[in-house]
């Protein structure tokens, strides 16, 4: 075991998979010599050579198409989109092409591509870097969307994603890259791509979150316990496509109330889908409406007010209190 940050855990996962499977390739903008703008691929080109870890020309659509083409020929590309705000440039290759290759060819070809990408607010990036755009891919059949909240999960989920035979969008919250360390086994291990995890047990209220919001929700839950003696159960979704509704329903059967917290804007995001599924699967176990804590429906704001815009522990706490009383 070693103490690792999330960025180290990701680097370690890439290293192990490159070492294990000669078909794994890592590429994107600045991932080679520079080791990625966040150093996620640091040292990998030196270790595995420029045929396996390489810089591409600056074109996200090109990166996506290259990945799909290589996948058709049996490689397992791990393509980096330098920031997820640039995903619009590669939308067709992900949502139009990669997602439907299996269906179109009746599995003659498959698309075991991982699109890794940093995203998430609170680190004062310029525009179009921090946006939480996972909702676009919650609505994209044929891709998985994985969002780890800690170093252990990041490593295990990334290894699972690389070994999975379908396209996986792997989103790395920038604020989590170096903000926490935890014990991470040095050897390879996997974490299932479609299972949520209860990260805090409680009997009074279910709080569902993913990415950096897991930590915000945990803070709010501690505060609620301290001030009111109310015990919230916090679920870390880990995947927003598919959504592990079973874990959510099991919790709601116990708590009868729920709040969903997301860093993305309010309308038609992962939270909306979660609430719809709760309605379908657990409405008779609810004692009140399921609420959302989200930013307003604006563009991701310029850096000056991002900390106010992103749900704070206080806002989540307010949401929890409302959910307990409505």
């Amino acid at each position: 075991m070693a103490q690792m940050t999330m960025i180290q855990a990701i680097n370690n996962a890439l290293d192990l998979e490159l070492g294990r499977d000669p078909n794994v390739l890592v590429f994107g903008e600045d991932v080679g010599k520079n080791g990625g703008v966040f150093r996620a691929t640091d040292g990998l080109q030196a270790k595995y050579g420029a045929n396996r870890v390489f810089d591409t020309p600056l074109a996200e659509s090109g990166i996506g198409g290259l990945a799909v083409g290589l996948a058709i020929q049996g490689f397992r590309p791990v393509a980096e989109i330098q920031f997820f705000g640039f995903v619009f440039e590669v939308m067709d290759q992900i949502a139009g092409q990669a997602s439907r290759l299996r269906y179109r060819t009746s599995s003659r070809f498959q698309c075991p591509v991982v699109f890794r990408s940093p995203f998430g607010g609170g680190v004062k990036t310029p525009e179009m870097h921090a946006d939480s755009l996972e909702g676009l891919f919650v609505q994209t059949p044929g891709v998985r969307v994985v969002i780890p909240s800690n170093p252990y999960d990041a490593k295990g989920l990334l290894i699972s994603a690389i070994r999975d035979n379908d396209p996986v969008i792997f989103l790395e919250h920038m604020k989590l890259y170096r903000s926490m360390r935890m014990e991470v086994p040095e050897e390879a291990y996997t974490v299932p791509l479609d299972q949520a995890k209860v990260v805090r047990e409680g009997k009074d209220l279910t709080v569902i979150a993913y990415g950096a919001m897991v930590h915000t929700a945990l803070k709010a839950a501690e505060e609620l316990a301290k001030t009111k003696g109310v015990q919230a159960e916090v679920i870390d979704l880990r995947s927003v496509n598919p959504i592990d509704i079973d874990t959510i329903v099991a919790s709601i059967k116990k708590t009868h109330r729920a709040v969903v917290v997301q860093e993305a804007q309010r309308q038609a995001g992962a939270a909306a889908e979660i609430i719809a599924q709760i309605n379908e699967h657990a409405i008779y176990h609810l004692e009140g409406p399921v609420l959302r804590v989200t930013p307003p429906d604006t563009v991701y704001p310029f850096a000056q007010i991002e900390d106010e815009w992103i749900p704070t522990p206080q806002r989540v706490l307010d949401g929890m209190n409302r959910a307990l009383t409505v």
Binding site: E29, D30, G32, N34, V37, D55, P57, L58
Partner: peptide, 9 residues
Amino acid sequence: AISVPVRLQ
């Protein structure tokens, strides 16, 4: 382009 030399573009 950041770290990528033009001959790789």
